[in-house]
Amino acid sequence: MTRLDAIDRRILAELQRDGRMTNQALAEKVGLSPTPCLRRVRRLEEAGIIGGYVAVVDQKAVDLPVSVFISIKLERQREEDLDRFAEAVSRWPEVMECYLMTGQRDYLMRVVCADLPAYERFLKARLTRLDGIASIESSFALAQVKHTNVLPLG
């Protein structure tokens, strides 16, 4: 595991806010010259701490305003059942996040779609066709109170 010092944390904080920032601008913000700053960024990338750079797209602006949180309970929690479920879900573009959980449910996922009929199609064509699902509970988000991709690095 790569040990992060205060400068690494500042670099990560700045890049989380603006991943398109030039190395020159980043170096100025964290108090380094450009060459050592770039070396640190490359080291963070190679260590897998920075996993990539993406554009954050507003789901409403691209006609996917509906977020559905789905709790799923499997009939059995054997490793092969868990693996089969995870493999299927990883192929579905509507699934934005999916977590293996403790507690009453086995999985919690967030799905985005255009409207209620689109969610119904997802449910019928994908989710309910998987073997081994005991129950599915859907909750529709009314409003997003907070969303961030910025980790609290301290």
Rank of each mutant, 00 (worst) to 15 (best):
V145E: 13
S138M: 08
M96S: 12
S135K: 01
D8Y: 12
E120M: 13
L130G: 03
E45Y: 04
I7E: 10
T35G: 12
Q144P: 04
V62D: 11
E45R: 13
M101S: 05
P152D: 03
V150T: 10
N149L: 15
V111M: 06
L123E: 09
P65Q: 08
L82K: 02
K73Y: 05
L44T: 08
G48L: 01
R10W: 04
L38K: 09
V145K: 07
F140L: 00
R105N: 09
G51E: 14
K60T: 10
I7K: 08
V30K: 00
F140I: 06
T102S: 14
C113S: 10
I11S: 01
T35C: 04
I136L: 03
D131K: 15
I133R: 11
A134R: 15
T22H: 02
G48D: 01
V62C: 05
D81C: 02
A6V: 10
D83A: 15
D58Y: 06
A27R: 04
L151K: 05
A125M: 11
L15V: 06
A6L: 13
R126H: 11
R78K: 13
S90I: 05
L82H: 02
L130I: 01
G52Q: 02
G19H: 00
F140S: 03
C37L: 11
L130E: 09
L130H: 01
E75F: 12
D18T: 04
E97S: 03
A88L: 11
A13H: 03
S138F: 12
D83H: 14
A27D: 01
M96I: 09
F122S: 08
F69A: 13
D63F: 15
I11H: 00
S71N: 13
L153K: 03
R91Y: 12
L123S: 04
R76I: 09
Q59Y: 14
S135N: 05
Q16A: 11
S67F: 14
Q24K: 06
E120W: 02
R17C: 09
V150A: 12
P34D: 03
E14I: 08
S33E: 11
Q144V: 14
A6M: 13
A27L: 01
A13L: 15
V66Q: 08
P117Q: 07
A134Y: 10
E46T: 07
G132A: 06
F85G: 03
K73T: 00
I72K: 04
E46R: 07
F140K: 00
G132E: 01
P152F: 03
K60C: 09
N23L: 05
E137M: 03
P34G: 03
A6Q: 11
V57P: 05
R17T: 10
L26E: 02
L127V: 07
E75M: 13
G19W: 07
Y107Q: 10
L15R: 05
S71K: 12
L82P: 04
N149K: 12
A6F: 05
P93D: 12
S71D: 08
S71Y: 14
